[in-house]
Design a protein around this nucleic acid. Structure first.
Lengths: 482, 482
DNA sequence: ATGGATTTGTCCGTATGTATG
DNA sequence: TCATACATACGGACAAATCCA
């Protein structure tokens, strides 16, 4: 609109004439509409790299021809177009291609189902009612100061050192992770961190074992980087170690503390077997611990990573669940054996840190004041209430017609429904009743012959009061009046 | 520290004894230092999933043995360790592995040269003295509100729609880029965005042409994803089109508006030839426009992308230069023909947005108020002053002994030095004189037989007053008293 | 709401290249 | 060849309007 793509540098047309013609066309074509303020003489001159004179002359010309109006010391404004009846040529000309600058309706496919539901049991929402808004604002504002100008520049590509120190301390205390700050790598998203892992490990074997069913991000991400994703069966106590030995892989992703989506805990005996497998094949284990802090009854489950010192475990965590996804702060803990590989990747690629330095510093301050610990406890208590309410509601309304899988932790349970209806029928009935609950079938990388009818019931996002009525409505939709 | 990795679940040791032993060891080993406050009885019990009783018993035991001290209604605090002379066993034992929680000196290689220099002509610093601190804080605080809780959740994986609209408008006006918001993809870093491009285009040809010399990030990133990076010669007016036809490639990365590092502008004729090449081989052009806003004399150079409608150009830009790198907001503009590929990548991989949603929203508000335009002009004026001062200083001190390459735009110029000394000597002399100026030799993917002695002189980061003395010092270091 | 900083239309002195006499 | 006039462009200056703390 303002920056004319073509400009006759030293040709015959004087600059002010070119400018005048360009702006006249913009107005006639309707791209500059009535009452629109033109850029000030000085601004446009500056933008175009000219002196004010040609701009002024162009504006004067437009002014004298009545295309624009001058409000002294306020600006130039586009006049209403001359009446079409008087100049029919312009009117017909301006019809087809007008308003090119209007937003075009998006052709992008809907990736998230954002329809409003009366009862939203989405599998992993957050409840932000307890988010420490004022404290976060205060700490952010303290981070962003003139006196600390350098904090606005690029930070450590691995993540802010002080922040990594805080995370190392936190992980040691609350998740039993044994690591130094040097082993921690910050990133803005899971995909990015996993991509780094795939680059670090991809020189030899390009296979990754994943839990089936499980969190599909691992399979998807590594596939994008040329890996083959091998589904590994899930037993009652976690991934099947036997299969790991049968197949020629050296990398596996697991969620031992709270399996996604089925919620099982891998017992210590199996954990030791898994670590032994990694040592035997000289391979690596990716430990997904995205909800490790959120265990509601019984003892928290320490990480696999800290069970045996210096084991080949890559631990993945982040602040999306404990704080907010919008901050964009995730991390991973690399085993010592991968540090050199990581450093050479840094050197070769000149990687920048993707996670905002300001948010890293703010989180660091938040943790240094011991506020994270406090906030996690608050959130856990809140989610525990919801969790308990959900279980009570399911028991009350469904009784023997459904059973709950994977309780006591995380942000959802699975509801196994004993119904004659097909999964698709159940889905539709839920939608019609205004209840959001997605089927767990998409978590299978390789679906079994008969899919169990299991549905996600997320409890973290929905408000406490809506849980019981929501479950009641869902039960009635599926089983008629109860 | 607090969460014991090993816990004898139902073994012989009572819980309080395990806890007592654990904490005693922590204190003796020095991991819990004097005057550190222990977690409160209730908190620790909650954390461990126990009742308060065993925790209280453990603390009582520690108290009675003098390891900790109780301050009623205040907390338990670690006492000073018993005197080593009295208990020599502990002292000797605590020497080697003590203070495990202390920050370990990093083994990571120095990636950025962060030594303090008296005169810092780093090639691409920012001057944050004019950063709109208060306005940014205000807008950020307005973005982060209880009433807009949802903004804390995951956002649109492509980037916030309203923000993309603002970027589209901005690019059209100030860079001559023609695009709809649908074509814009937000990301937190260049590497991540380029990785997406490499995944989108990597199904067929895995080759990328890059300017030689040029910005090595393109070669490095695509190499990591299995591409071969082919150096293409640089002519006086930009990349050599002839070579593109000779080699079997279908992807090239260029910086037409201000070539990095040599600062040349690709003339319109060559731009059209380049676009024609892309059409002929059915390939793509990556246009790097990271400093397109910063042209100091003469007219701004409109983007290659907007020269011909619907051309196969991927435009790359970001807010690191115009605002601050620490925000972590970059973007690219995809051609229409790549949108479907991008969408299926989104669907398959379940990509999350990496750039912080809060910063996107804040930037959006900033742009909606027209403040970005204002800020860019301010920064450009500031950098122009520095640019002009640098050129004057070089002329004044070096005279005929050096010439300047690539002026009038960006954040650096190249100084070609006519000296008998080797590059390494010049480097060392500059360092000894307290002047930071890196050689341009690293920008060659494939160095020529004789490397010209060219040095980066960045002017954006250094303060205006230091420019002339800095150049003076540098000249004297290299040529003796002048 | 109120004062100070910034922005804005307008005006003016000057410089340069070209055409004219 | 020289002086003059004109069109075009540059860089400031002024005072009112507007924005912002």
């Amino acid at each position: 609109m303002l920056l004319t793509p073509k400009w006759d540098e030293n040709g015959d047309e004087p600059q002010y004439v070119q400018l005048y013609t360009f702006m006249k066309n913009e107005i006639v074509a309707g791209r500059l509409t009535e009452q629109t303020r033109l850029p000030s003489v000085r601004k446009l001159a500056d933008l175009l790299g000219l002196s004010t004179t040609p701009v002024e002359m162009a504006y004067q010309q437009l002014l004298s021809e009545g295309f624009i109006q001058s409000r002294p010391r306020s600006g130039y404004f586009v006049e209403a177009l001359p009446d079409p009846e008087v100049k029919p040529g312009i009117a017909t000309n301006s019809e087809p291609g007008q308003h090119e600058s209007q937003p075009v309706p998006s052709k992008r496919p809907l990736l998230r189902d954002d329809k409003p539901y009366m009862y939203d049991f989405h599998m992993s929402q957050n409840d932000f009612s307890l988010f420490p808004y004022t404290m976060w604002r205060r700490l952010y504002n303290q981070t962003l100061r003139l006196e600390q100008q350098e904090d606005l520049f690029y930070g450590d590509p691995q993540g802010e050192p002080g922040f990594r120190q805080q995370i190392a301390d936190y992980l040691r205390r609350y998740r039993g992770v044994a690591c130094s700050p040097d082993q921690i790598v910050i990133g803005a998203d899971q995909f990015g961190l996993l991509s780094l892992v795939s680059l670090m490990l991809g020189t030899t074997h390009k296979h990754i074992g994943v839990e089936n069913p499980g969190y599909l991000l691992y399979a998807n991400t590594f596939r994008q980087h040329g890996y083959e994703a091998v589904p590994i069966s899930l037993e009652e106590d976690g991934i099947c170690i036997g299969e790991l030995y049968e197949i020629n892989i050296r990398l596996v992703a697991v969620s031992p503390s709270h399996q996604y989506p089925r919620g099982m805990i891998m017992p210590v005996s199996k954990r030791l077997q898994l670590l032994e497998w990694a040592q035997t094949v000289n391979g690596y284990i990716i430990e997904d611990d995205y909800d490790g802090e959120f265990r509601y009854h019984g003892r928290p489950i320490p990480s696999l990573q800290g069970l045996v010192p210096n084991s080949n475990v890559i631990y993945m965590g982040g602040f999306a669940q404990v704080m907010a996804p919008a901050l964009g702060v995730w991390y991973m803990v690399l085993p010592e054996t991968l540090l050199e590989v990581y450093y050479s990747l840094l050197r070769e690629t000149l990687l920048e840190q993707s996670s905002s330095r300001l948010h890293q510093r703010t989180l660091q301050a938040f943790m240094e004041k011991g506020l994270l610990e406090k906030h996690v406890r608050k959130m856990r208590n809140l989610y525990r209430k919801k969790h308990d309410a959900l279980l009570a509601a399911v028991q009350k309304h469904f009784g023997e017609r459904a059973s709950v899988i994977g309780k006591d932790a995380g942000f959802h349970v699975l509801l196994r429904v004993y119904s004659e209806r097909t999964e698709e029928e159940l889905k539709q009935l839920a939608i019609q009743a205004g209840v959001r609950t997605s089927s767990a079938s998409f978590t299978w990388l390789l679906p079994p012959d008969t899919l169990p009818k299991e549905f996600f019931l997320g409890f973290s996002g929905i408000s406490l009061e809506k849980i019981d009525p929501g479950i009641s409505v869902l039960c009635r939709a599926w089983f008629g009046d109860s």
